[in-house]
Amino acid sequence: MALTLEAEQRMTDVGVVAFYAGDAESWLATVRATKKFVKRNFPPQAFIRRDDVAKALIPILEVHEAFRDFRNAEKLRGKFWIKDFADLLIDRTWDNLDAENENGENGTES
C-alpha cells in the first residue's frame, strides 16, 4: 500500500521523517538493493511494483539496528511503524532507484 498523508503526518510528528532524512542516501541504497533482490527472484520480464518491494523491505526493517534503536528510543511499539516506514522509503526513493546500473555506476558518462 502506498504512503498516505495520514501516515506521513504521523511519522513527521514523532520524528521518523527526520530520521529518514538524516541518512537518506543509505536508505536509498537499502531500497535499491531490495528492488534488485525482488527483480532477480521474480519471473523474467515481470513488472516490479512498489508494493512488491515493500513486502520484501519490511523484514529488513524489522531487524535493521538503527531503525530498531530509533523505534525503541521513541517508544514506537506498533508494527504499523515498520510498514509505514517502508512506504515512506519507497515513496521518497522510487524515482531514483534505477539511476545507477547494476555495477553501481551512474548511467551518465563522465
Rank of each mutant, 00 (worst) to 15 (best):
T108I: 03
V31L: 09
V16F: 00
A18E: 13
D51M: 11
P59T: 10
L3K: 14
A29N: 11
V16Q: 04
K36A: 13
F42Q: 04
T108L: 09
W27P: 00
G15V: 08
Y20M: 06
A2C: 04
S110L: 08
F37K: 11
K83R: 09
V38P: 02
N96Q: 10
E74L: 02
R50I: 02
E105L: 12
L57P: 07
D13P: 00
G104A: 09
A56P: 14
A56W: 11
F85L: 02
W94H: 13
V17I: 12
P59Q: 11
V17A: 12
D69N: 07
I48W: 05
L88R: 11
L89T: 05
D98A: 14
D87A: 15
L88A: 07
H64L: 03
E105S: 11
M11A: 04
M11F: 10
G78W: 01
F42D: 01
E102F: 05
F80V: 08
K83E: 15
N101H: 09
R77G: 01
L5E: 04
T30M: 14
T12N: 08
I90S: 09
R10A: 14
G22E: 15
E100F: 11
Y20W: 10
K75N: 14
A33H: 10
D91F: 15
N103G: 04
A33T: 06
L5A: 05
D51G: 12
V53K: 13
V53Q: 11
T93G: 03
A29D: 12
N72V: 04
P44I: 05
D84P: 10
D98E: 15
D91N: 15
Y20I: 03
F47Q: 04
A7N: 12
E109P: 14
D95G: 10
N72R: 09
E8M: 09
W81N: 06
V38N: 04
Q9M: 08
L97T: 07
R40I: 00
N103L: 14
D87V: 01
E109N: 14
D69H: 02
K36G: 02
A66F: 01
V53C: 13
A46Y: 01
E62L: 08
D84F: 07
E102M: 09
D84K: 00
K39M: 07
L88Q: 08
K39G: 05
I48T: 11
D91W: 14
P43V: 00
R71M: 08
R68P: 00
E65Q: 08
D52W: 13
T12M: 09
A2S: 14
Q45W: 00
R50Y: 01
M11Y: 07
F47Y: 10
N41L: 00
F19V: 03
F67C: 03
S26M: 09
K36W: 06
K36R: 11
A18V: 06
R10H: 10
R49Q: 12
F67W: 04
G107A: 00
K39T: 14
L28K: 06
F85Y: 10
S110G: 08
W94Q: 12
A2Y: 12
N106I: 02
E74K: 12
S26K: 13
